[in-house]
């Protein structure tokens, strides 16, 4: 699996990179759960979460630009958050001369803050863990074999489909097709069934090759199980997040 050159992964040798994947998955899930449970008016808590993430990026040596460029996936959600203050009902407040709905502004902020923090957590996980390691992590978390089989094949076949689509595009161009943006979409749509059948036939051979080399549906796992100490190290960010949440809720 050529997962070494992944779009979101940033190779490194930090403590965060070396942590076993299963610890990182659990850490990310619990961390985001804390973020979502935070009442929306506890603005300082959200700032605290952001600082915590920045510390993790510093330890993992992931530059801010790497995360920021990939966070644009969130833009459609941000647009909703920006529209909400104008559309919500209830009491009106005036900010910079604009009349905004108080409920709508808070709702927009809520989605913006929690959605952004969620995206940043996922990106941090993806930047320090390859997709292959993630599948091994799910396997160590006792995910059923059917699930890891489908997930492994899916990650493998994404490359098969992309390569097959490139080949079909080359074939079209070499037969005089002049692809421009929208027209290319039309040709790709008409060829989508062919792309599927061709990818399946190649994928079938890939699968047989994997099976004949001893693949049984599980990713090879050469790591040792995580020790209690590793778990505690890995879950430190969750403990900090939980502490920030508790402080925000109980301190006046």
């Amino acid at each position: 699996m050529s997962s070494g050159h992944h779009l979101l992964y940033r190779p490194g040798d930090s403590v965060v990179h070396r942590l076993p994947a299963q610890v990182k998955i659990v850490c990310a899930l619990l961390g985001v759960l804390c973020v979502v449970a935070t009442p929306r008016t506890e603005f300082l808590a959200f700032a605290g979460y952001l600082v915590l993430l920045a510390v993790i990026w510093a330890i993992a040596a992931v530059p801010f630009g790497h995360i920021a460029r990939r966070a644009v996936i969130e833009v459609p959600f941000v647009v909703i958050a920006l529209v909400m203050p104008f559309l919500g009902g209830g009491d009106r407040i005036t900010v910079l001369g604009m009349s905004l709905s108080e409920q709508g502004t808070l709702a927009g902020w809520n989605i913006l803050a929690k959605g952004t923090l969620g995206v940043l957590v996922s990106l941090t996980l993806a930047a320090t863990t390859t997709p292959g390691e993630l599948v091994v992590g799910l396997q160590r978390l006792r995910a059923p074999a059917v699930i890891t089989t489908i997930a492994t094949l899916m990650l493998r076949y994404l490359e098969v489909i992309a390569a097959e689509a490139r080949r079909m595009r080359t074939a079209r161009v070499s037969r005089g097709h002049d692809p421009r943006f929208l027209w290319q979409v039309g040709a790709t749509a008409r060829g989508i069934g062919t792309l599927f059948v061709r990818s399946y036939e190649r994928g079938e051979r890939v699968h047989l090759a994997m099976v004949s080399r001893g693949w049984t549906g599980r990713m090879p796992d050469y790591g040792a199980p995580a020790t209690l100490r590793t778990w505690l190290t890995g879950l430190t960010p969750v403990l900090v997040t939980g502490a920030v949440l508790a402080a925000a809720v109980w301190l006046p």
Binding site: A162, G203, E204, V206, G217
Partner: peptide, 14 residues
Amino acid sequence: TAPMAGLVAAFVFA
């Protein structure tokens, strides 16, 4: 069917 399931997942993903 295993490769078909993987391919369907990859296709839906894409």
